[in-house]
Design a protein around this nucleic acid. Sequence first.
DNA 1: GCAAAAGTGTTATCTGTACACCCATGA
DNA 2: TCATGGGTGTACAGATAACACTTTTGC
Lengths: 231, 231
Amino acid sequence: MSLPSFYVNVPRHLVAVDCIIFGFEDGKLKLLIIKRKVDPMEGAWSLVGGFVQEKESTDHAATRVLQQTTGIQDIYMDQLQCYGETDRDTGARVISVAYYALIRISEHDRMLANAHGAHWLALHQIPELIFDHSRMLSDALARLRDKARFHPIGFELLPEKFSLPQLRNLYEEIYQRPLDKRNFRKKILAMDILEKLDEKDKSTSKKGANLYRFDKKKYAALTQHGFVFEI
Amino acid sequence: MSLPSFYVNVPRHLVAVDCIIFGFEDGKLKLLIIKRKVDPMEGAWSLVGGFVQEKESTDHAATRVLQQTTGIQDIYMDQLQCYGETDRDTGARVISVAYYALIRISEHDRMLANAHGAHWLALHQIPELIFDHSRMLSDALARLRDKARFHPIGFELLPEKFSLPQLRNLYEEIYQRPLDKRNFRKKILAMDILEKLDEKDKSTSKKGANLYRFDKKKYAALTQHGFVFEI
DNA sequence: GCAAAAGTGTTATCTGTACACCCATGA
DNA sequence: TCATGGGTGTACAGATAACACTTTTGC
């Protein structure tokens, strides 16, 4: 197969994807990182990443890389942005497309991740990362805060069934500020996008906290009529 | 110079940049587009674009391409996102990084642009664009709306000196809805980020509208103290 | 019975929104 | 003098923010 002449004699580039993978556990936002297995910077802490193959989209590369290095599948993932500085990777000129992902940390996933040499660390425990990965992380955090404010993506970080204190705790962690218990409850319930379950979570108190489920269909229906989620 | 072994036998890709260039003139948001000069799709309407060279960053490629194809320099530009589908360009597999730019349309720039075969068209007059460029445009518009809401980037589209009716008109155009004259004036003046000039714009009325200038320093100072611009 | 987290309402303040008339001026 | 767009203030409604006590239950 020959290229149109416009495309010949054009430089070609190594293109990578890097994944900023957020989870939520023990009331803390966590990040999944690995010890790099290849030179340069072998052994240093790094985001999960890999190269874009000949015939796959960058989106596909991101989900594939995540799946291959951690065994994790079927999760919320969104493009952050492209990092295109010429010297960002010290091994070669590599253009990287960063993606951020939100994960419900499960024991299953935790074992798989460990088997792949990946580790969940709380945000304040994250060591210096290679190349521009620390920059990617702070950009991703900023994006997460922006996005979570007007889109119900927080639920991607919680188990299917969750309590309101849990949900509030998540947003307090994302925005790093306390949220009033009563006001939060009032606001979120007024949206009418949660299904109240007949079940309690007794793991954090004697009394037990009622469990809820995010009602995707209701949310979709409301959205159609101009409703905007906002925390 | 040899590469670390990790980087050999890795597929390389054509990487392009495409620019969504917004301007504001005659009370309308406009887009700068060109008739494509190369195959495939020669003669079809296209965003301004070009390939990323060996030793330049993607940011640099975007400003270079804009400068080369329109003569325009020194403008607000921000990355939109990367488009990485394998079949997005019908000529070859090309990964494209899209940038959006905001321009003060001047006669000087207009002539240069015309000389390069580029045209300013009002948004509602934009024809079908090649490849995924129409998608890029609508993504860029969405981003512009998002960003302009909380960042004072609207001023990039206006001349240095502008009137409040002009500014309001711009936001009405961006958000496609009428804004109350008095409320808008009250809100924007309360921010205390505009310098009132001793000059009037008489081009649109007998009375003349007072001119203002955006005070970058004041804005920067306020931002440091937690102030957030919001329309 | 007590410690610990869950759950519940009311009030004051702020912010957004609606709205109509006078002003300055060139033609 | 009149037509045109520029400039001004107030009142109401809805949203946000502050705040303290009761309930449940395992130990």
